[in-house]
């Protein structure tokens, strides 16, 4: 079935966007990325030092996976804008996963700084994919300033707590005119499937795969979960009912004594 993810006019066959952080080494990361089927993967921008020669860019190039730089670690709009501009220069892409977090304990987005940075980066020609709170109003405002997608969290980064407020995610997906990407909080495959069932266009995750006991197998699990959730969303789920409804015909049941089911 041809059902590509389209962000800013670019088509992706995979609806799973992954991060590269948290993997024990590049070989583990490579196997997990291949198993996940991802076509778009985030990297962070950091000061050059002895530890920065990781070879992650070479790996992604070899695997044919697009690089999505993020602004992880930035606390202010000014920091995020400069980091995005540096990433554009270094990686020759105008795409950016915009991250402006408020504090280390929660890593929750700072809505004021985030919106300001989004507006500046859009004006500077970036394709902006903002990591945002699960706040339908903020999501709408990010879309209004020209973001190419909105990426609400399911729960805080790295917690694996899943989607804490599914209703908010559904409110966001029901009103968004741009793709909604569930970003952060995914713990296991059912969380990713739920995101897709709630109408998300894609899922972005890292820790759930890279820190799983078997990252390669979890990468494959997430691929299946995203595909399954997407298919279920398109198929249209049955309404929830209070009472049971038999799925077998009620008539012509063999009975013993006075038992009569579905025949009054």
């Amino acid at each position: 079935m041809d059902d590509p993810l389209i962000i800013a006019g670019r088509e992706f066959r995979s609806r799973l966007i992954t991060g590269t952080g948290g993997a024990a080494n590049l070989s583990v990361l490579e196997r997990a990325l291949v198993a996940s089927g991802t076509e778009l993967t985030t990297v962070a921008m950091r000061r050059v030092d002895a530890a920065s020669r990781t070879g992650v860019l070479e790996l992604l190039r070899r695997l044919g996976i697009e690089v999505l730089p993020n602004t992880a670690g930035c606390r202010t709009s000014a920091e995020a804008v400069l980091t995005a501009q540096l990433a554009r220069e270094a990686l020759e892409t105008n795409w950016v996963k915009l991250e402006v977090v408020h504090d280390e304990e929660t890593l929750l987005p700072d809505p004021v700084e985030l919106l300001d940075a989004a507006e500046r980066l859009v004006a500077d020609g970036f394709v902006v994919l903002p990591y945002t709170n699960d706040d339908p109003v903020l999501a709408r405002k990010l879309e209004d300033v020209g973001c190419a997608a909105v990426m609400p969290l399911g729960s805080p980064i790295g917690t694996g707590l899943g989607i804490r407020n599914p209703h908010n995610i559904e409110l966001i997906t029901s009103r968004a005119g741009v793709p909604v990407v569930l970003d952060a909080g995914i713990g296991t495959a059912s969380d990713a499937a739920l995101a897709m069932e709630l109408g998300c266009a894609a899922v972005l995750l890292a820790t759930a795969v890279t820190r799983a006991q078997d990252p390669e197998r979890m990468g494959a699990a997430m691929r299946c979960a995203v595909e399954g959730g997407r298919l279920a969303r398109l198929a249209g789920r049955i309404p929830r009912r209070f009472w049971a409804q038999a799925s077998s015909p009620g008539l012509r049941v063999a009975t013993v004594g006075t038992h009569v089911l579905g025949e009054d």
Binding site: G19, T20, G21, G22, A23, L29, T42, V43, A44, M45, R46, R47, V48, A51, S52, T54, V56, L57, V67, L68, P69, N70, A72, T83, L86, A87, A90, L91, K97, E99, A206
Partner: peptide, 8 residues
């Protein structure tokens, strides 16, 4: 002076 590293 910045470069890309594993992250996100």
């Amino acid at each position: 002076v910045l470069t890309a590293v594993q992250g996100g």
